[in-house]
Measured scan of single mutants.
Amino acid sequence: MQGVVKVNSALNMRSGPGSNYGVIGTLRNNDKVEIIKEVDGAYEIRFNGKVGYASKSYITIVN
């Protein structure tokens, strides 16, 4: 499943599905991501070869 990031500035990509996990990357508006699955209000995603988590509130599914 594919998604597009929709933010005003940037969205943190984290090592786990919550803000208490470390930041492993930054997503920008209109970045395209692969959605692997939904976990606790976040999506597990793949972006630029990395797998991490981002809030589903800022990712629009575009299948």
Rank of each mutant, 00 (worst) to 15 (best):
T60F: 15
Y21L: 04
M13L: 13
Y43Q: 00
S19Q: 12
E38F: 05
D40W: 09
S57F: 14
E38L: 07
E38Y: 05
V39Y: 10
Y43M: 02
I36D: 01
V5D: 01
Q2R: 12
Y53V: 02
A54Y: 02
T60A: 11
I24G: 01
N20S: 12
G18S: 10
G16S: 08
S55A: 12
K50T: 10
G16T: 06
I24V: 11
S15L: 08
A54M: 05
Y43K: 00
N12S: 12
K56W: 03
V5S: 02
I59P: 00
A54L: 09
I35H: 01
Y43T: 00
Y21R: 05
V62F: 09
I45T: 00
I59T: 00
E44C: 13
G16C: 07
Y58L: 07
Y58F: 13
F47Y: 09
G16F: 03
A10Q: 13
Q2H: 12
K32N: 08
G22P: 15
P17V: 07
E44P: 00
Y53G: 00
K32P: 07
G25I: 10
D40Q: 09
N20K: 12
K6S: 10
P17L: 08
F47K: 03
V23P: 04
F47S: 04
A10H: 15
Y43F: 09
G3Q: 02
I61Q: 05
R46K: 11
L11V: 15
T26R: 11
G25V: 09
R46M: 11
T60K: 13
F47L: 05
L27N: 00
A10E: 12
V7C: 15
K50H: 08
G52M: 03
Y53R: 01
I45M: 03
Q2M: 15
K6D: 04
D31I: 03
S9W: 11
N12W: 10
R14I: 05
S9H: 14
E44V: 11
V33Q: 00
K50E: 09
I61W: 04
G18W: 03
I45F: 05
D31A: 07
L11Q: 09
G3S: 02
R14K: 06
I59Q: 00
D31G: 02
G18Q: 06
I45G: 00
G49P: 00
L11Y: 04
N8K: 15
V23H: 04
Y58C: 14
R46V: 12
K37S: 14
N30D: 10
V7I: 10
E34A: 08
E34D: 11
F47T: 03
I24Q: 03
V33C: 05
I61R: 06
N63I: 12
I35W: 01
A42G: 06
E34L: 12
I36M: 09
S57W: 13
G49R: 04
I45N: 00
M1G: 07
S57G: 11
G49F: 04
K37G: 15
R28N: 11
K50A: 08
R46W: 11
G3W: 03
I45E: 00
N30L: 10
I61E: 04
N12T: 12
F47D: 00
P17I: 08
G3M: 02
V62K: 06
Q2G: 06
E44G: 03
G52L: 03
F47R: 03
Y21E: 10
A42E: 14
L11S: 04
V4S: 04
G52W: 03
E34S: 08
V62H: 07
G25K: 04
R28D: 05
V51R: 09
G3H: 02
N8S: 13
Y53S: 01
Y58M: 08
S15I: 08
G49D: 08
N8A: 13
N8D: 13
V23T: 08
K50R: 10
E44M: 15
I45W: 00
V33P: 01
S19H: 13
V4Q: 07
K56N: 05
G3N: 01
G18V: 02
S55V: 09
R28F: 12
N30M: 10
V23R: 05
G3P: 01
V23M: 04
Y58Q: 07
G49W: 03
I45Q: 00
Q2Y: 15
V62T: 11
Y21P: 03
Y53E: 01
E44A: 07
R46N: 09
N8Q: 12
S15T: 09
I36V: 09
V62E: 10
N20R: 11
N29I: 05
E38V: 09
N20A: 11
G49Y: 04
R14D: 03
K32S: 09
N48S: 07
E38N: 03
N48I: 04
M1D: 05
Y58N: 11
V39M: 09
G22M: 14
G52E: 01
V51H: 09
F47I: 07
G41Q: 09
D31E: 06
F47V: 08
R28W: 08
K32H: 11
I61T: 06
G22A: 15
G22Y: 12
F47E: 01
G3L: 02
G22K: 14
N20C: 13
D40T: 07
I36E: 02
I61P: 09
K50S: 07
G49H: 06
I61F: 06
Y21A: 14
I35L: 03
G52C: 04
S19T: 12
V33K: 00
G25L: 09
K50W: 06
I24P: 02
D31L: 04
N48Q: 12
D31F: 04
L11D: 02
